[in-house]
């Protein structure tokens, strides 16, 4: 089947159009849906196969990044999200969407009642960083990275992207269960220092999935590298057939075939 993607908007979402476009390029159909329409029942989550929470500054990130939208999911949509997850559907959160997923209780495991165990906090540089980074794709249950290239080139653009687990056990849990999907690496494949780890993330973590592999959250933006002219190096290296990010969206579509 051709999966339907619900790209969730709220006040301050701003990568919704490009996320929709990326899914469409990958063969899905996608709708932009304001969270108010989910809350008032006008739009039904169950009619979709993929939930995508795009980048942006929902509600201004005024309290902390993604917090207010996360609370809307956690306190008002938990039941529907649980059902969606139990129906073996897919959820992806990119940048602000990743911040929302960890703060809502959808990552690293789906639990709307427990205390948050990981967070995304202010970059070590103390400021917003728009940079291209290299990502190592680890062996993981993640649906979105099946048969992925070993190394990917995506941009990051955030102020609060430093991944921090609350303690060593939490980190060990992520590692042991192969939930660390993406890690920042330097161009020569070594352990990255700034700017290759652009935010100081613990264990260089750029993205994680839940144990089922059906929920993915990542700080870098795959939807900003789908066309050949997206790469910062295309005027040097020539035009590729497609950007590194498109495969991730194609995998999501492929999952429903």
């Amino acid at each position: 089947m051709i999966p339907g993607v619900l790209v969730l908007r709220a006040a301050g979402s701003n990568c919704d159009d490009e996320t929709k476009f990326a899914f469409e390029q990958a063969g899905a159909r996608a709708d932009l849906v304001h969270v108010n329409r989910l809350l008032n029942g006008e739009v039904k989550l169950e009619n979709y196969q993929i939930l995508a929470i795009p980048g942006g500054f929902t509600y201004g990130d005024d309290i902390s990044a993604g917090k207010v939208l996360a609370n809307q999911l956690k306190y008002k949509l938990a039941e529907k999200l649980h059902q969606f997850y139990n129906d073996k559907k897919l959820i992806i959160g990119i940048c602000n969407g990743f911040q929302v997923l960890v703060k809502a209780g959808l990552l690293p495991v789906v639990d709307f009642t427990a205390q948050q165990t990981v967070t995304l906090t202010i970059n070590d540089s103390g400021k917003y960083e728009d940079r291209w980074v290299y990502l190592k794709v680890n062996d993981s249950p993640c649906v979105f990275t099946r048969n992925s290239k070993a190394t990917l080139h995506y941009p990051v653009a955030h102020t609060e992207g430093k991944f921090v687990p609350q303690d060593d056990q939490t980190l060990q849990y992520l590692i042991d269960n192969k939930l660390v999907v993406f890690q920042y690496i330097s161009p020569d494949g070594k352990k990255p220092a700034f700017p290759w780890n652009p935010n100081g993330s613990v264990h260089d973590i750029a993205g994680i999935c839940d144990p089922s592999g059906r929920i993915l959250g990542l700080m870098p933006h795959p939807e900003r590298n789908i066309d050949p002219t997206h790469s910062p190096f295309w005027t040097r290296n020539g035009l590729a057939a497609e950007g590194d990010g498109l495969a991730l969206f194609k995998n999501a579509v492929q999952y429903f075939k």
Binding site: E18, A22, D130, P155, A157, H221, E223, R224
Partner: peptide
């Protein structure tokens, strides 16, 4: 420059900073 998002909306084709190390 790096504090500004120049990639959002997915249309950036030649960035404000260019070259081998961007």
């Amino acid at each position: 420059i790096k504090q500004y998002d120049h990639e959002v909306q997915g249309g950036s084709a030649l960035k404000p900073l260019v070259g081998a190390a961007g």
